[in-house]
Amino acid sequence: MNLHFQEGPSRQYLQDMYNSVILKDIVQRNNLRDVDLLERIIGYALNSIGHVFSASNITKYLKSEHRKVSNDTVLNYLNACTTAYLFYKIPRQDLLGKKLLSINEKYYVVDHGLREAVYGHNARDIDQILENIVCLELLRRGYTVTIGKTGNFEVDFIAEKGNKKCYIQVTYLLASPETVEREFRVYKDIKDNYPKYVVSMDELDFSHDGIQHYNIRKFLQLPHDY
């Protein structure tokens, strides 16, 4: 995957930052020799922001690109990226089994402006960018963040801090009754009384059944602890 940089002063600044992180914090610190492989893995992760994937997903993609690499190598390169704070790795937890899951995490980029400069397509991938914004805000506020799996459904974020906890589902628009049903349905099997939110770009309030809906701007302006 070749990464094509956009033009313009701010994008040039972000491009320079990206190159600095790649060369200094990842390649040199970890003594990585295959920079092309690293960039391909980063490109895959940037494309997959907000989507669960595993090392085997990347190895299969690389195989289609005629690059043979082991799962362990992919994991080592991804760990180098998270150690350099290019990405945050968010683990998944089984809400019914009460345990962390060891596969299919999500990765979020430290700055979605960096994603635009490096990979592009932020305007096209607005749903992924909204998730990235919410994730970064939760981390900034000091929450421990995980993804929740409940049966066949998944909650985008579980945010915990001390005795505080909340659930957050992020979507672009609640554009149809089917979309409303899908986004609110994920909470059906979660029986505790912690706050449950659906966050979108909609201006209308779709709150119901004790689940609070917020426009993302209003959600980000809520008091420091949800």
Rank of each mutant, 00 (worst) to 15 (best):
70 S>Y: 06
80 A>L: 04
23 L>M: 12
97 G>V: 02
144 T>N: 12
29 R>A: 14
4 H>M: 09
73 T>C: 03
46 L>H: 01
114 L>C: 10
152 N>H: 10
151 G>T: 10
85 Y>I: 05
78 L>N: 02
107 Y>G: 01
212 Q>R: 15
126 I>D: 04
122 N>M: 02
165 K>P: 01
163 N>R: 12
33 R>K: 14
226 Y>N: 11
220 L>Y: 09
30 N>R: 11
62 L>K: 03
186 V>S: 04
153 F>E: 14
191 K>L: 14
200 S>L: 08
95 L>Q: 00
40 R>Q: 14
200 S>C: 10
45 A>M: 07
214 Y>W: 14
96 L>N: 12
212 Q>K: 15
26 I>L: 07
155 V>T: 04
143 Y>H: 08
22 I>Q: 00
73 T>R: 08
13 Y>N: 12
203 E>D: 14
93 Q>V: 09
16 D>C: 05
131 E>D: 05
75 L>V: 11
59 T>G: 03
137 E>T: 06
90 I>F: 04
11 R>Y: 15
100 L>Q: 10
118 V>I: 15
198 V>G: 02
192 D>Y: 10
12 Q>W: 04
180 V>M: 02
168 I>E: 02
213 H>G: 05
89 K>T: 13
188 K>L: 01
126 I>W: 11
179 T>I: 12
201 M>Y: 06
108 Y>Q: 03
141 R>E: 08
175 A>V: 01
168 I>M: 08
206 F>Q: 03
223 P>D: 15
84 A>F: 06
22 I>Y: 01
1 M>L: 12
32 L>D: 02
19 N>Q: 15
124 R>H: 12
171 T>P: 02
39 E>W: 00
178 E>D: 15
86 L>E: 02
176 S>Y: 07
172 Y>D: 13
38 L>K: 01
101 L>Y: 09
121 H>T: 14
72 D>T: 11
134 V>Q: 03
178 E>G: 01
43 G>I: 10
98 K>N: 13
166 C>R: 00
162 G>M: 03
86 L>H: 06
92 R>K: 13
37 L>I: 10
71 N>V: 07
204 L>I: 08
214 Y>L: 11
13 Y>K: 12
47 N>M: 06
157 F>W: 05
32 L>Y: 09
212 Q>G: 00
129 I>E: 01
47 N>T: 13
140 R>A: 14
160 E>P: 03
70 S>A: 13
114 L>M: 15
186 V>N: 01
27 V>C: 06
187 Y>E: 08
68 K>M: 14
41 I>W: 03
90 I>H: 00
212 Q>E: 13
146 T>M: 11
210 G>I: 09
153 F>D: 13
133 I>L: 13
95 L>I: 11
176 S>E: 05
135 C>A: 15
179 T>F: 00
49 I>W: 00
197 Y>R: 01
173 L>D: 04
205 D>Y: 05
162 G>V: 11
166 C>L: 14
105 E>G: 08
107 Y>D: 06
60 K>V: 12
67 R>P: 00
7 E>V: 12
136 L>S: 09
199 V>W: 02
107 Y>E: 04
25 D>E: 14
195 P>N: 10
155 V>F: 00
155 V>E: 02
176 S>T: 15
164 K>P: 00
117 A>C: 08
45 A>H: 01
